[in-house]
């Protein structure tokens, strides 16, 4: 197996000659989200983060599906493909699998990724295609004007559910870990520093990285993530996941529970040694999965950061290796030889 398999995420992508700035990544298109939408903050964070990568702009491609978030590619001066509902991971898979020299990003929302495109998402994750998937989760359908989404809480009153929604929501982090994802993280639209730190780790990972971004829809589901933003609450309920660091907030800590699982307890009731130390690289996904279930009931304590990051060969590299191996074994393809293969006979 080549050294690239375990190389860093950007090693195959050509580097820019000159230093870049935020301006280089802004397109000339007018941004058309509702005033106050969380998407603006994410766009600004991404635009100011991309120069840091130092990649050739022409080797970056943003692929999206359908929905408010999927307008994202138009606003970046890179290559972009605004595709069809739910199919961005499939289209991006073909692109990334055939072009290991590209940095391919998928921009999607909770409806796009988890409803109509759920199948493509889980298969991209298990294949470990070289993609950075940014899942904007606002727990509502925005572009179709306010129906409940697959991440809406049970009992959500919306236009299509006047008596409350009945379906149990997906937890995107649990879903991704269950789908064999090699990189899974959660961050918040309004915390640019954290968001960019997660993007930094996601881009350094070769393979599929799934980043759930809690994003506020101020029109149809305003303040959905307010507890995480409220200065009086956030420091207590936010459990920042950092590899090698104890998992704790100002007042809470995660410890091993007597039943073998994990639980959140008051920080001052336990010693430092008892607090669980985060191991994002643990090959066993069960602890990362348990962490993803901590915010039940919602917003009592919410882990954010990188839940899981394990090294696994990326699909594009494996595919390219098979082509190279075929050439090594049999030599490069020769059309005339191909046609003459099998039983032939000559007439005349």
């Amino acid at each position: 197996m080549s050294e690239l398999v375990n190389g860093k995420g950007l090693s195959l992508i050509p580097k820019a000659d000159a230093k870049q700035s935020l301006k280089d990544f802004k397109s000339d298109q007018e941004v058309r989200w509702c005033p106050g939408c969380g998407d603006y903050a994410i766009l600004a964070a991404v635009q100011s983060f991309l120069p840091e990568l130092g990649l050739r702009r022409e080797n970056i491609v943003f692929v999206s599906g359908i929905g408010c978030s999927s307008r994202f590619p138009y606003y970046l001066n890179t290559y972009g493909f605004h595709s069809i509902h739910g199919r961005a991971p499939a289209i991006a898979t073909g692109l990334a699998a055939s072009r290991p020299d590209l940095s391919v990003w998928v921009i999607t929302g909770d409806g796009d990724a988890l409803s109509i495109g759920g199948n493509h998402l889980i298969h991209a994750l298990r294949r470990n295609v070289n993609l950075n998937i940014l899942l904007f989760n606002n727990r509502i359908y925005g572009l179709t004007k306010g129906q409940y989404s697959p991440t809406s809480e049970v009992g959500k009153i919306t236009k299509s559910t006047p008596m409350g929604s009945l379906d149990k929501p997906f937890n995107p982090i649990s879903l991704a870990i269950g789908a064999e994802a090699s990189f899974v993280a959660r961050t918040l639209d309004s915390d640019r520093k954290h968001l960019q730190s997660v993007l930094r780790e996601a881009t350094a990972h070769r393979g599929t990285s799934l980043v759930e971004i809690y994003q506020n829809c101020n029109i149809f589901n305003d303040n959905a993530f307010e507890p995480l933003k409220d200065p009086g609450l956030r420091d207590d309920i936010t459990l920042k996941l950092e590899h090698g660091q104890p998992i704790a907030s100002a007042s809470k800590a995660v410890v091993r529970a007597a039943n073998g699982g994990i639980e959140v307890v008051a920080r001052d009731g336990v010693s430092d040694e008892q607090i669980l130390v985060h191991d994002a690289h643990n090959p066993d996904p069960s602890l990362a999965f348990a962490l993803s279930r901590l915010d039940e009931p919602a917003f009592e304590h919410v882990p954010i950061g990188v839940f899981r990051q394990v090294e696994r060969p990326a699909y594009d590299v494996l595919m390219a290796e098979q082509l190279d191996e075929a050439v090594d074994r049999q030599g490069p393809g020769d059309l005339s030889e191909l046609l003459l293969g099998g039983d032939t006979w000559r007439i005349g």
């Binding site: 289209i91 493509h120 075929a326 393809g333």
Partner: peptide, 22 residues
């Protein structure tokens, strides 16, 4: 594959054509 042919067995028909278009 020695002709540089990439074959991708997709999760469904939609992903098959989507990947080809990508």
């Amino acid at each position: 594959k020695r002709f540089g042919v990439r074959t991708f067995q997709a999760e469904d028909e939609i992903a098959g054509v989507g990947a080809a278009l990508g």
